[in-house]
Design a protein around this nucleic acid. Structure first.
Length: 315
DNA sequence: TTCGTTCCACACATTCTTGG
DNA sequence: CCAAGAATGTGTGGAACGAA
């Protein structure tokens, strides 16, 4: 039987200006950037303003298994982020500044399995001392598969305490990172961008979104979103996800991440770095949470692993 | 495999144009 | 002015393909 379960929190504040950006980033780039902000808030930079995060830790936060030794893909994505310049605060939330465009990263270097990176000074003061911000949860974002889901989730979440403004569809395209020559037909934009991302957000996150397209003349010109807190996350979807991950345990023995949620808080727990070994009919999970604390959980078999975690989810 | 993108088909709705 | 037909756009379902 399980002996102990620990909980951890992976939320971080993100400045509104850096949410409403021209979103020419891919899914993985968005996730990496959020991890870098999260890490910057958790750690101190060195005297030159450079932050560090181990590649293993970065991979854990991204949900990439530790046993996946090929870091080339990740390195390429980081290099690409350095080249990306985005426009900020497209929804003009912060009236005190008029900064408009900056690169996301000033520099980055991978040496001895550690990523060292810095933000431009310009960006850093916004990112690390946000006055106008939204609390985001790395785990929730990590669970989203589409770049449009992430962009829409962050933007709508940013207005969770006030009404999301009615915006021109062109601005919506820019926020989502849909270039003007893409999805020219509103039909395809709806089907492939708006509705797919709303569906994923409503399934997997702590908010529930609906939307309205507003016509001007013959065609649609504006879009408006309404969001309300999701009463309960789709537990069945989580259970299914969880079961898949536990099945992976069977196959992979190492590097699996387990998420648990309960009724009080949507996601309360993640075990990073799950190590598994089978000894004499027993299943031992060696769990290291994000704070680095290690726990050993002993189960009689995999059914017990499943049922214990499920019990914790349905509490 | 999944995601992002582009197309196609066909029915239906709305707006524009034009001839009487 | 008005009715009919043309033009344009939406709704829905789906195929295909390259990239990740």
């Amino acid at each position: 039987m399980a002996k102990e379960i620990t909980y951890s929190d992976m939320t971080f504040p993100k400045h509104s200006s850096s949410i409403a950006i021209s979103n020419n980033l891919t899914t993985i780039q968005k996730k990496v950037f959020n991890v870098l902000i999260y890490n910057a808030r958790q750690t101190k930079p060195n005297s030159e303003g450079i932050y560090s995060i181990s590649i293993n830790q970065l991979k854990e936060h991204l949900g990439i298994p530790r046993y996946d030794k090929n870091n080339t893909h990740l390195k390429n994505r980081i290099e690409e982020i350095m080249k990306i310049v985005v426009k900020f605060d497209l929804l003009k939330k912060d009236v005190s500044v008029n900064w408009t465009a900056a690169p996301l990263l000033a520099g980055a270097q991978i040496r001895n399995g550690v990523l060292r990176y810095s933000f431009s000074q310009f960006l850093e003061e916004k990112l690390l001392d946000p006055e106008i911000f939204t609390i985001l949860d790395l785990l929730i974002i990590q669970g989203l598969n589409s770049k449009y889901s992430i962009a829409l989730y962050e933007n709508v979440k940013d207005f969770s305490t006030s009404e999301f403004p009615k915006i021109p569809i062109n601005l919506f395209r820019e926020l989502m990172g849909v270039e003007s020559d893409k999805y020219k037909s509103i039909t395809d934009l709806k089907k492939r961008v708006i509705e797919t991302s709303i569906q994923e957000i409503n399934e997997k996150t702590d908010i529930n979104i609906n939307y309205e397209l507003i016509k001007q003349g013959r065609g649609f010109k504006y879009i408006k979103f309404n969001a309300k807190p999701s009463k309960n996350l789709n537990k069945e979807a989580y259970l299914e996800e969880l079961n898949k991950k536990i099945d992976n345990l069977n196959k992979l023995f190492i590097g699996v991440q387990i998420m648990v949620n309960d009724k009080n808080r949507d996601i309360i727990c993640t075990f990073q770095n799950v190590e598994y070994r089978q000894k004499k009919e027993k299943v031992v999970l060696n769990l290291k949470d994000v704070t680095g604390k290690t726990k050993l959980l002993e189960f009689n078999n995999f059914e017990d692993v499943k049922s214990t975690i499920q019990k914790n989810m349905i509490l």
